[in-house]
Write a protein that binds this DNA or RNA. Structure first.
Length: 105
DNA sequence: CGCTTGACACCGT
DNA sequence: AACGGTGCCAAGC
């Protein structure tokens, strides 16, 4: 199983209305390669099954979406709000919306 | 092989 | 709270 595929599998488990972080995914895979998580999502093969917009940064800010292009970032924000997530000043309240994986992926 | 690249995290100021 | 610097490590070249 490639690193990317494990990232995609975990990402697809995040329920609607919740989010997770790059670091959270990496930790769940017992690695510190949190930066690689983003690189994997960027290569998302099936956005329908893999809601990569639900993956944000650990400080609650949005992170990127298909690159760091501002237009794409806004798109990501719209998708999150469509899920019922409120974003104030570009920040998401992780205490409220963070999805916690059960130790096994 | 070795060097660079990131959709990041963490700590100090 | 907000920056800025440093650490991270799989992939790609």
């Amino acid at each position: 199983m490639r690193f990317e595929e494990r990232v995609w599998r975990l990402t697809s488990k995040v329920p609607r209305g919740k989010v997770t972080t790059y670091g959270e995914i990496a930790r769940c895979m017992n690695t510190k390669a949190y930066r690689i998580v983003g690189q994997a999502l960027k290569k998302n093969p099936d956005p329908i099954k893999i809601p990569c917009y639900r993956v944000i940064k650990s400080d609650g800010s949005i992170g990127g979406y298909s690159g760091k292009n501002l237009k794409n970032i806004r798109k990501k924000i719209q998708l999150l709000e469509r899920d019922g997530i409120t974003i104030k000043n570009g920040l998401i309240d992780l205490n409220k919306y963070l999805h916690r994986f059960n130790s096994k992926n």
